[in-house]
Every structure is written in structure tokens, then in C-alpha cells.
Design a protein around this nucleic acid. Structure first.
Lengths: 305, 305
DNA sequence: TGGCGGCACTAAATCGAATTAGTGACGCTC
DNA sequence: GAGCGTCACTAATTCGATTTAGTGCCGCCA
């Protein structure tokens, strides 16, 4: 900045005023132009660290991402966040919160002094004290409702909810199951019955056979996400269970491969990018938290439900 | 820091000396202890931004991650990086380099002044001017060789290399194809013939039928990764092509689901976490770049090859 | 012609740590 | 007992921007 100042024959303070467009300072057009030109000439870029020191926080927004959140629209969510932040001169950085480094989050925060932290990690616990996620969790509830409603509208009254077996995504899938239960209740049907699907297709087949024997009234399965649905479909096929005639299946996320399964997977499309944008705007304090975002979800109707 | 200084009755400089263990300063044990205690008491954490300003760069290492690198061991790679960096007081932050924000990378660098940047994005172009990746690319070449050698050792002399159709991962898959070609040549067989596999299984079936009609001598297919292999297997099954009898298939990455396909997928296991650790050590200048890391790959022999 | 207000800037403090150049006190030697 | 060296610290500068409190100059009015 000092170089720019001396190149344009003014003081560093003036350069700062010009480059930041400080409104309560009067700068003559001539000076303004000289400074701008000098800055361009020397291709000056503000030193983010110095600025952060003075301002108290950097222009970085931190996303605390649990491996839990692989897939499930997170990629789009990140894209939305990043784009929107870039539009306001901020930058998104992701901290991948592996179990080993759980404690490192504080170190990261102390190290970068981010403008805001968006934490998806602690979001599904009972406390919900993490930063605002752009309504993505609330959206999840609303979107679970869309999934269940599609089945109920089609006449199903006894529904199962399939989620992955093992402890990889327990908190998130527990939340989804809860949301599904709530919306079922609102729609006047029984809450979905939990069906944990093992990874091994043989085990899964046994599990499904057993499940359907115990729950003969079940005619539809909503799944945790499309990945589960795409594992479920071949299992049902091997068992000779017709989809959607005997059992209807609806996924969640609308991933690419869903269109190519047999039968093609009906799913719920979620505008994760929109949630990302909202989260960004809220993190920067541009939107009111209270205004609930109208990020819609809709059913992608294909063959399986 | 000033608080710690006055609490322990010394100057800020002394606090800095104590807390950073500056070696060419003599501090009396008594003082040292008083300072350390005061720091603990006030739970003082160094202000990363201020430190970064003084030192010229922050204790952040930036990973520039292209969506290209979804999967394929990247998750483990990140874990390895993060763990190793944490061990040396550094922190990993990931910049998700979406196409829209390609230009934002410079902004990020100016904003955080990272200690090092590890860029996987530009790594497969002809220039290779990006930062050291811990030998992951070179590893990729070596590991491609492992994949091809397994087939050659089993007596195959005419090999295909299956990669995803579409332009999502072109640069990376082109590199893999090249590496496979090189190792085939070294082993004295013809370089693998490219087979692009469309996502739609029907299209894929047609493509494979056509391919095998044109290349009747092909008896084995090495794939870009396990995901491609897991798409290929059902396609071959539908076409009535016996695996591994008529066509052997070997994947790459050793993902979890590979053990549960029919037939179970033979694959190459890669220690991506090890590459991450190496990349971290190199980024911090702890290892020589020249010492080639002995991060091994080995074949996970199952049924498909 | 003295005083006042506004314009267009500048000087200097500030953010929090790291670091260089000292400084006072003490011990030791000749 | 003057001089030197070591020990155990401290004062003050630095990093690069932002920001507050001025300052000099000009014009205008009484």
C-alpha cells in the first residue's frame, strides 16, 4: 500500500480511503483516479492478514464439515455457499472434521479468525447451538415431509424408512427418521417403521425378507437417500418383489444414477445450492435469520413410486 | 499476551520467549513457570492472525481440491494430511474449487497467506507446476502398474482400460490411461485399449457388446476406479459374459462395496492416507522432496480377476 | 482583516505477536 | 577495583492495513 501511495503521491491513508470507498471522506476525482491507476499498475492486492488483524476477523467463512455429510447434496451446498460469499468479497474454506482432529476446530478458529463459522457437525444433536446453516436442517424436515407425502398421496398407509446399517451416519439418519415420523403423523398415517439395510446384499436380502414377513402391511419404503435406495432396488429384485407394484420405493437427493436404475428411481430433488446461498447471506448478516427461506423441494417422479 | 505478561510480572517479550521456547534466550526456571502458569490460568491462545502478520504466513496449509477428486481415496488423503499437519501445529483448510470460482483461488491465497498450497487441480496437465502432492501422482503411475501387472501375471495379453464416459474426470482418467499404457509396454504387452463406459446401463451394454465384437482378443479389463468396475460388472452379467472366465475385471481404490459385488471385485488398495502424510511433511519442508516415498499399493485379490 | 467552515488530505495510533538491540545486575579475573 | 562477560530480562520496532484526530489552505462573510 505504501508503494501505491508513493507512486500516486499521496499518503497510505488516502490510498485506503480510495480503495475501500470510504464514504465519509472527500477525495478529489483527480486523486482518486491517480490512486486507482497506481494500484492497478502495481497490481496491488490488499494483504488479507493485515486487514484481518485490524478488523478483528478475516474475510473467511469456515464450514465445519463432518465426513457424515459426504454426498447428500453437500457438494451443491458448498458451491452455493462459495458463490454467494465470493459475491461479497468473502471466501469459503472447509475444515474436514475427522474424528481424530475433532479438537482441532478451535485451533482453526483461533488461527484464521473467520467472519463466521457454519457447522453442520453438531447440528443434529438435541442442542442445535451451532451456527445457522441456511435452514438446511429445517429444510430437511420439510423435505422429509415431501417424501412421505408422495407415498401417502399414492394411497400408502404403511410405510418403512430404510437407512444404512452401521454407525456411519447415525445422527443424520436418526433425524431423518424422526422427521419422517412427524410428517406421517401430520398426514394421518402410522410413523414409518425403521429398516436398517446392511451393506452386504446377501445380508440385506435376509433382512428385507425378515422385515416384510413381520410387517406384511408395508407397501412402500422411503429411503434415507438415493444411495440406500439404489442398494435396495436390486435386493428387492433378487427376492422377486415387484417395484412399485408390491413395494414402492422413493429415494432422497435425486442423484444422477437414479434415472438409470431398474426400475428408474423416484426421488426428492433438493435445492442444496439454494440453501448454501441462504447460509452464506445469513453468515454475513445480510438476511434476517427469521425470514424462513423458501427453498423448495419437489418429487422427481420416475418408476419406483 | 499483555495480560499474561502483567499477570506474571514480566514483559510481553519474555512471554513470547517462554511460550515459543526460543532457544537463544535464557529464561530462569522460576520465570518460565510463572509465565506458563499465567498463560494456562488465563487460557491464552496465540492470535493466529497477528502471528501470521509478523511471520509472513499463517500456519495454514491450503488444499486446492477440484470436484474431479471426489472419491478415489481423497477422503483418506485429506485425513492423512490433516493429522500430520496437526502434529506440527498446522491446520488444513480445503478450498473447493468449483468451476465458477476458479479465479477465487488467488483471493484465498492473498486472504490467508497459507504456509503452503497443495494443488491437486492442475496436477495432471502437461506442466505439473503445482505444489508437491506427496507423490500421489507418481504413486498413481506406480499403482497403475500394479493393476496392469496383476492381469499380465495372470496371463492376459490383451487388456482394455475402462473409464467413465463424459467429461467429468477427463484429465485424471487420461493420466491413468497413459500410466496403464506405459506399464503395459514395460511388461511387454500391448497398451490397454480405451473403453468409455456410459452411465446408462443400456447404453453401456451396447458399448461393451460393440467393443468386444471389435476387440475379440481382449480377456481382461482394468478400470479407472472401483466405481466404474462396479458399474461394469452388472453390465457384463446382463450380457451373459462370465467374469472372470471370459473377461477378468480389476478395479482401483478398493472401496467398501467391492467386497459385496458378484463376483467380488479384485482391486488395488492404495494408501492414500500415507500420501497425505507425506504431502504434509513435504509441504512443511520436513522431508526432502527427492526421497521418493515408499507408499505401497497391493492387489486385493477377490473373485473378478 | 479576522474568523469561521468546509475541503482534501496527512500523521499517528492501532490490531497482537515476534524479534532485534539493548540494559542493568552480578560474578569473575587480573 | 576497573573491565569484561554472562545472565535474565525489557524497550522498541516491525508486519500491512484501517481509522481517528488533526492540519493547512482556500473561500466567504461581517
Amino acid at each position: 500500500m505504501r508503494d501505491v501511495a508513493s507512486a500516486s503521491g499521496v499518503s497510505p491513508a488516502t490510498v485506503s480511503f480510495v480503495l475501500n470507498g470510504v464514504s465519509d471522506q472527500t477525495i478529489s476525482p483527480a486523486t482518486r483516479q491517480r490512486v486507482e491507476e497506481a494500484a492497478r499498475e502495481l497490481n496491488y492486492v490488499p494483504h488479507g492478514i493485515a486487514r484481518a488483524l485490524r478488523e478483528g476477523s478475516s474475510r473467511i467463512v469456515l464450514l465445519d464439515l463432518d465426513p457424515l455429510f459426504r454426498g447428500g447434496g453437500t457438494e451443491s451446498y458448498v458451491r452455493g455457499l462459495e458463490d454467494e460469499l465470493a459475491q461479497h468479497g468473502h471466501v469459503l474454506l472447509v475444515h474436514h472434521d475427522s474424528a481424530a482432529s475433532r479438537s482441532s476446530m478451535q485451533a482453526v478458529i483461533d488461527g484464521v479468525r473467520p467472519r463466521a463459522v457454519i457447522s453442520l457437525s453438531g447440528l443434529y444433536g438435541p442442542e442445535r447451538d451451532a451456527a445457522d446453516d441456511g435452514g438446511r436442517v429445517d429444510g430437511l424436515a420439510a423435505h422429509s415431509a415431501v417424501q412421505v407425502r408422495h407415498l401417502v398421496d399414492a394411497g400408502h398407509t404403511s410405510i418403512a424408512f430404510a437407512l444404512p446399517d452401521g454407525d456411519r451416519a447415525t445422527r443424520l439418519s436418526a433425524a431423518r427418521l424422526r422427521f419422517a415420523g412427524e410428517s406421517a403423523r401430520t398426514l394421518g398415517v402410522e410413523p414409518p417403521i425403521e429398516l436398517r439395510l446392511p451393506i452386504d446384499p446377501t445380508d440385506a436380502g435376509a433382512r428385507v425378507t425378515d422385515f416384510l414377513a413381520r410387517q406384511p402391511k408395508v407397501t412402500a419404503i422411503a429411503t434415507f437417500d438415493d444411495v440406500v435406495a439404489l442398494r435396495l432396488l436390486p435386493v428387492l429384485r433378487t427376492l422377486g418383489i415387484a417395484v412399485p407394484e408390491r413395494i414402492a420405493v422413493i429415494g432422497f437427493d435425486d442423484i444422477e444414477y437414479g434415472a438409470f436404475s431398474t426400475p428408474a428411481l423416484t426421488s426428492v430433488h433438493i435445492d442444496a445450492e439454494g440453501f448454501g446461498r441462504t447460509a452464506a447471506r445469513r453468515a454475513l448478516g445480510l438476511d434476517e435469520e427469521s425470514t424462513s427461506p423458501a427453498v423448495p423441494a419437489h418429487v422427481i417422479q420416475r418408476e419406483s413410486a
